[in-house]
Structures are given as structure tokens and as C-alpha cells.
Design a protein around this nucleic acid. Sequence first.
DNA 1: CCGTAAAGCTAATAGCGTTAGCCAGCGTCG
DNA 2: CGACGCTGGCTAACGCTATTAGCTTTACGG
Lengths: 187, 187
Amino acid sequence: MPRAGLDRGVVVAAAATLADEVGLPNVTMSVLADRLGVRTPSLYKHVDGQADLGRRIAVLALTELGGALRDALQGRAGKDALDAAARAIRSYAVAHPGRYAATVRIDADEPDEQLVAASARVLDSLSAVLVGYPVAPEDRIHALRMLRSLFHGFAVLEAAGGFQLDTDLDASFAWIVTAADHALRGR
Amino acid sequence: MPRAGLDRGVVVAAAATLADEVGLPNVTMSVLADRLGVRTPSLYKHVDGQADLGRRIAVLALTELGGALRDALQGRAGKDALDAAARAIRSYAVAHPGRYAATVRIDADEPDEQLVAASARVLDSLSAVLVGYPVAPEDRIHALRMLRSLFHGFAVLEAAGGFQLDTDLDASFAWIVTAADHALRGR
DNA sequence: CCGTAAAGCTAATAGCGTTAGCCAGCGTCG
DNA sequence: CGACGCTGGCTAACGCTATTAGCTTTACGG
């Protein structure tokens, strides 16, 4: 039997795309193994169980999201930057619901080096949006948390189908970003 | 063997408090049965499987949250109402993390009469907060979605331990509510 | 006081994650 | 060029989950 040529990276990537297709909770070791043309226990040669796999998907997602944010923010400032960041987050969550869902279940047990690094980069990018706004230094942490809550909440609700009318969602999102812009500017 | 005197309501309530104690994903049929002094299969006489149980926990949570919101908003308007609503949601999510988590995984398949009714009442209460603000009628849906996203996102992030410093969380929350007040007022 | 519907039980099935231990392919180094 | 060893695959097995089928016994209504 020829080797399948697996690799930790390949396994995690396959799990991530599988999660995007069928939903994170449905990413079972069996179907992942099937997808990779291998028997279930073989996965344990590359990944340390299901929890480890989920954590690695989250790291992958945060890394990708951080890159997307960095790209989106190139040369932008103020409302332009806010808008770009908001769109980047939302489209990532829509395009990769499984990966995005993996970032939610982190549970601050065992900080995990890579994971905090990846999320720090996301936070740095998001924090860069604030430089164009008149927020006092001691308030930046609050403003950052507001943006996180707002965008994350919208993404979670949209992914869960929590909004009744799917129509107007784009309009709502644009309105919300504008409102956030006003909140950050006028005080 | 004497009857345990179970009941659909009792089972769901026990599952909800169990979820608050050990986390929703750890609410297994076995431990729930143990908690109720009964064998696992007996639960199926009162509840239609795990998915049904989760849905009923969500209905319970939304009903309780709706009541808390209604109470909190009695006789309040404007920023006062906004503040009360925000606090009500946050403290419910903190006090009942398992119940609150159940409301997240709804997935808009099979709308389910009771569930839409319960969430409609929550939305109505939240919508009542907006009457004190100068938002155009066609913008109310956007403003409502903003508040939902903001509060829900904060609750999810707080529950997941997503914020680094637990200290200052109260300050951040107050700051965010004030910012939302400004966003809704000044345009 | 008896019969019946419901609420408990035991037994059994299928699927999950995970571990142990075996075997074969492949690279490395004598 | 050949043997050795690492590593990635395998099968077999265990314990846990949810769920269904079918039996028994409780409690209540006529």
C-alpha cells in the first residue's frame, strides 16, 4: 500500500475546508480520514486528537484572517480603514464559516503560543484602524473591544441565520459600520 | 421502584442548570439521567433526543431573557433604557452561560413555533429601547441589528474568555454602551 | 377494583474518539 | 549496494455516546 503522503499541514488544511463545507461540528475523524483516503487511526500520527485539531484550525483561521486584514488595510485610514476591516472580517466569516467557528471555541485554558500570536496579529490590525480616530490612549482598549464585539457578533448571528430577512443584510452592515464610525469620531 | 415523577419541564430545567454548571457541550444524556436519578433511556419518554432538548433549553433561555429585559426596561427610556437592557443581557449570559450558549446554535432549519415566539419577545424588548432615540423608521431594523450584534458579540467573547484582561471589563462595557448611545443619538 | 396509558427498566445497536501493537515503505549510512 | 531504523500506514480493541425496541410496573380513571 503506497503512502498517502500526509502531513500535519495537509491534515489541518483538509479539516478546515471540510469544516467550511459541512460545518465544524460535523468534522468527524472518520469523514476526515475518508476525505484523505486513509483509515481513522492514521490521523493520530499527525494530530493529537480532536481538540488539538480544532485548535490548529483556529490558528490557521486567525492567521488567514490576520493576513486578509493586513491586506485590506493597506494605505487606508479613518472610515475607509474601518470599512475595509469590517468587510474583510465579514467576508472571511461568510466564505469560511467552519474555520471561523473554530476561532470561537477557544476557552482560555492553555494559552497556546501559536494561537495567542495569531490572534494578537488580528488584534493589531484591528487596532490599527483606530489610529485615524480621536480616541484617548486609555480608551483604545475599550474601542477595540467594541469593534471586536460588534463585528464578531454580526458574524456569529449571520452564520447562525439569526437575522430574519437575509435581504437588507448588506444595508444593515453598511449602516452599522457608519454608526461605529460616528461612535468613534463624535464624542 | 417508585416513579421519579419526571416531566418534560423538569427534564429541560435540569438540563439547563446542568448546562450552566458544566457547559452545554458536556450536557450528556447519561449525566443528565444520573442527575435526575433515572436511567438514560427513560429521558426519551419526555424529550425527543438531544437536538430537541437543546432547542427546548434555548426556548427556556430566550423566555427568561425576554422576561429579564422586560423587567429591566420598566419605566426607563433613552440611555437609561439602553444601559438597563445591556446590563440585563450581559448578566444573564454571565449567570447562565449554558442556557445562553443554547441560544447560539439554532441554525434556521425548522423555525419552531415556540422558539421564534420567544426570540420575537426578546427582539421586541430590545426594539423598545430604540423609541427614545431619533432613528428613522426605516433604520430601526439596522439599529436593532447593531445592538444585537454588539451585545451578543460581547457576551460570546466574554464567555469564551476572549478578552485578555478580565479587569476593566466592566469599564469597557460601560464605555461601549455609552458609545452605542452616541451612535444612536448623534447622526 | 380492575384496566389502561404512561413511566420506568434492561438489552441491544450503531457510531464516535482513542490507544495498542503490528507491518511495510523509504531514506540513510555503513 | 544492502541492512537498519524511522515513520506512516494498518487492524483490533475498548469505552463512551445516543438511540430504539420491547418488557414491566406504577398510578390513575371509570
